[in-house]
Design a protein around this nucleic acid. Structure first.
Lengths: 156, 156
DNA sequence: CTATTTTTTTATAATAAGTTTAAATCGTTA
DNA sequence: TAACGATTTAAACTTATTATAAAAAAATAG
């Protein structure tokens, strides 16, 4: 974990930003809750436990900065709030999401899956893809019993 | 176009809602701007031209209703507003979007493309897919000149 | 037909997410 | 130490969306 913070620190420095205590506390919260999809408000409340004096605006600014640096991805599942999701280190593509319409759980798919589709789109539509968002809405394995085989953990 | 309105009317009636003049005006705006991705505010301004006495809240309520009925899809491209997109009649899947990070244009992909991916997800993650959202962010054919072949129109 | 109930709309107020601003702070450099 | 730039805080402000109360319209009962 320290090494990841170090790398983020270097990334900030390379753009002449500093890793202030507030920013570090925010990054730590994101790392400690990597499985979740926290809103700015969620992050704010968690950061406050470490750094009670921090302001909400600072959290917003930090998240914005981290989004610019591609450390996190800002995502939106259609409820009114933006959520922030740590980009998996080394991954060249943004992971996908499974949103359960029964229980609200959000699971992640790290596998690419879109390689072929992207090729088709780039060639067929003459569009240079830089990023993507893929979310499936449906019923998760916890909410319907007819299983195949299992392994995942549960969230939210 | 009249026939589509008729069908929407029947859909409303089947859930014991009425196609009031305000709702009809709103639906007409959506049909007349099928290519675009209008925000509630956009719809409101366009509807006002036909029905100047309509209130913004009514437009919001109508769009919400149409979303419930799956006549439109509520989408979100990450700017702060929700946009409303007529569901292509007869299509069993929601179409995809290409958002240009240079010029902001939003193009649509009507082709499915996700059939195989969905099969993999349903089986591998034991998740019953009901809907999906797929958006590519990148550079559209208008913003980079190296063409292959062309046909699309332009929007926004 | 009139009275009554239900649905919908209007206008306005309220809420909630996110952004901006001005003043204070902090770290660094001259 | 003085001065500068970057950052943070707190508070005010915007903007999108939702809720509420009163009015209007439509459907239904008598």
């Amino acid at each position: 974990m320290e090494s990841r913070i170090d790398r983020i620190k270097k990334q900030l420095h390379s753009q002449s930003y500093k890793l202030t205590p507030q920013r570090e506390a925010t990054v730590r919260v994101l790392l400690e809750n990597e499985e979740d999809h926290l809103s700015a408000e969620d992050v704010y409340l968690l950061v406050k436990e470490k750094a009670p004096e921090i302001g909400l605006a600072t959290v917003y600014r930090t998240l914005e900065l981290l989004t610019e640096l591609k450390v996190v991805d800002k995502i939106n599942f259609g409820d009114g709030v933006s959520r922030y999701d740590l980009r998996t280190e080394g991954a060249d593509h943004f992971h996908h999401h499974l949103v359960c319409i029964e229980c609200g759980a959000v699971d992640e798919i790290q596998e690419d899956l879109l390689g072929d589709v992207e090729k088709v789109v780039e060639e067929g539509w003459n569009f240079k893809i830089k990023d993507h968002r893929l979310t499936f809405h449906g019923i998760c394995h916890r909410c319907h019993p007819k299983d195949h085989k299992e392994s995942e953990g549960s969230e939210e």
